[in-house]
């Protein structure tokens, strides 16, 4: 039923409001006295170098691929999670087999050095 999603709707509205609030309010209330050191990029105290907006190495594609596959795997957990208490050990064993089938190929590509950064 769509009415089951009303808490999510309220949550979305509150989250949007807080995000907008946290961005808009400091913009109008906070004092702004910029100087070159303040305007500089900060990353944990390290001095920045080069341009951040450059091409990303295509090797990162592997990470994206694996992310999508595990994303789809998590999706199949959803109907199982809804039934978690009803299915008891049966469901846990079935989902364990499901997860194992993916984890073993994850270990395989890990051993193959897919995540080694060159």
């Amino acid at each position: 039923m769509p009415s089951d999603y009303v808490p999510i709707l309220i949550y979305l509205l509150v989250a949007t409001f807080i995000a907008a609030f946290a961005l808009v309010l400091p913009h109008y209330l906070g004092p702004r006295r910029p100087n070159p050191a303040k305007s500089d990029t900060i990353e944990s105290g390290k001095l920045s170098y080069g341009d951040a907006r450059r091409r990303v190495p295509v090797q990162y594609y592997i990470v994206a691929m694996v992310f999508i596959l595990f994303d789809i795997e998590v999706l199949f957990f959803y109907p199982w999670a809804v039934l978690f208490w009803d299915l008891k050990w049966y469901g846990l064993v079935q989902i364990a087999i499901f997860a194992f089938l993916l984890v073993e190929s994850y270990i395989y590509i890990w051993k193959k050095g897919a995540f080694k950064w060159k």
């Binding site: 090797q59 594609y61 592997i62 596959l69 795997e73 073993e104 190929s105 590509i109 193959k112 897919a114």
Partner: peptide, 14 residues
């Protein structure tokens, strides 16, 4: 999904 993962790595990895 396993096949897809291994296949993607087989094609993409140097």
């Amino acid at each position: 999904l396993s096949v897809a993962m291994i296949g993607a790595i087989f094609l993409a990895r140097e």
